[in-house]
Design a protein around this nucleic acid. Structure first.
Lengths: 230, 230
DNA sequence: CGAACAATTGATCCTCATCAAACCTTGTGG
DNA sequence: CCACAAGGTTTGATGAGGATCAATTGTTCG
């Protein structure tokens, strides 16, 4: 598998990069393959590399001392992750990154991005825009977790994930597919596998979704919106 | 009340600013006074100004459609807030800012900071460091909310707030004072006034804290740490 | 002193986590 | 090609943790 520099334009912070810059980043990158369920890095590791996901899907998670996990973010192709280390060299990753499917990703030294930012304002701007986006999303999710019931949170989670990592199941079919287990959804919505299973079963009866092993298809997003806002 | 430019060095992003820059910012600022419980701005308002708190304390909050509130951040003197608008002009505030006490604050146009960042790299770096800090804190709190029980979350909340806005009650007394109501603590820990009241009463019996109207004094931080980690 | 508002306390109830057991799906190896 | 193992899923029963509601009691301040 080969990465063409111009492909990197799909990455938010490289949207306005010059061809030379893109080439430079690709040349200073390593293509890594991470198998299903394997880890890119662990929370607390020194943040030496950041990643750009080329194919597959991954998640950022934190676990508490007891081992319970929470999903912080789900990552799709051409998204960057693990880049906070570029702001403070010597920083540690604040979360763990795990592959949801077999993945390929470019690994680039945080140091390299950090240095590049000194002379390329567009990188600063791009990174800040990414960060403000994260802050807004997680603040919103924090509020939902603190104030909303499980079913609403799950509906919101499905909708959010659909827009972030969902794939059309067919060209002319509005149905959207999410390659996530009940457990993944529980960790993303702040609930348990059991409750997610029950709730999805109910929604399937109502024709809003289709659920199968490790997969949810959203048939009627509007119905979910209604539940989320009820 | 007058703000001396050099005072601004206490603000994270101005730590390494030149005297000229500080003067420039002060000259382009407005000193606003916000009374107890009044608002600096509301979620959704265009983020025209950002603020630097000079005296008093404030909080950033979000509320859901039903009016339930969540505290996202508590702000102390010489902290900056509302600055995400400097990254994207035309952006809206993602949260509401409300005074916990009578406050004075410098209001500066987001536009002005945005322009200044084009030529002053230290501002970019400072803002990014602030943002990474927020991201880490709220991610942690999100995990706690999803995985920990109320008493633990409340202990963590008290400890966190103590380090952020706590004041020593006396010079040679390690006790730390927080000027917060039970309701404030409920909104900061993701619980209710009632549960907070009960829990604090129990801790007061154990000599960990002292609670009075609109105020909590932490007598034994170590005891709270034990509860938080239990 | 009285009004407004913060805090307390008890009783009740609901949501959802937890646990246990069985069931299904998928992939593998004989 | 079948049998089996592994792991995701379902379903029911149970209970705990807190939210909610109501009534009362401080506390503060004009």
């Amino acid at each position: 598998m080969n990465v063409i520099p111009a492909d990197l334009r799909q990455v938010t912070i490289f949207k306005e990069a010059t061809d030379d810059d893109l080439k430079l980043f690709v040349e200073n990158s390593i293509l890594r393959r991470i198998e299903d369920d394997e880890f890119f890095f662990f929370q607390g590791d020194p943040a030496t590399y950041f990643y750009i996901l080329i194919s597959g899907r991954a998640k950022l998670l934190q676990s508490n001392p007891a081992g319970q996990q929470v999903n912080l973010r789900t990552i799709n192709e051409w998204q960057m992750f693990g880049a906070l280390g570029a702001v403070n060299p010597n920083a540690a990753y604040p979360a763990t990154a795990q592959a949801l499917e077999p993945c390929t990703a470019l690994a680039i030294e945080s140091r390299f991005l950090h240095d590049a930012m000194q002379t390329r304002p567009y990188l600063n701007i791009g990174l800040m825009q990414l960060m403000t986006g994260y802050i807004q999303e997680i603040q919103e999710r924090y509020r939902e977790l603190a104030t909303e019931r499980v079913d609403r949170r799950l509906a919101l989670t499905l909708l959010r994930l659909a827009s972030q990592i969902g794939k059309r199941i067919q060209e002319d079919d509005p149905a959207i597919e999410l390659p996530l287990t009940r457990q993944d959804l529980a960790e993303a919505s702040g609930s348990t596998m059991f409750t997610v299973s029950r709730t999805l079963a109910e929604w399937e009866r109502q024709g809003l979704i289709e659920a199968s092993r490790g997969r949810v298809v959203i048939r009627n997003p509007h119905g979910l919106v209604k539940i989320a806002e009820a």
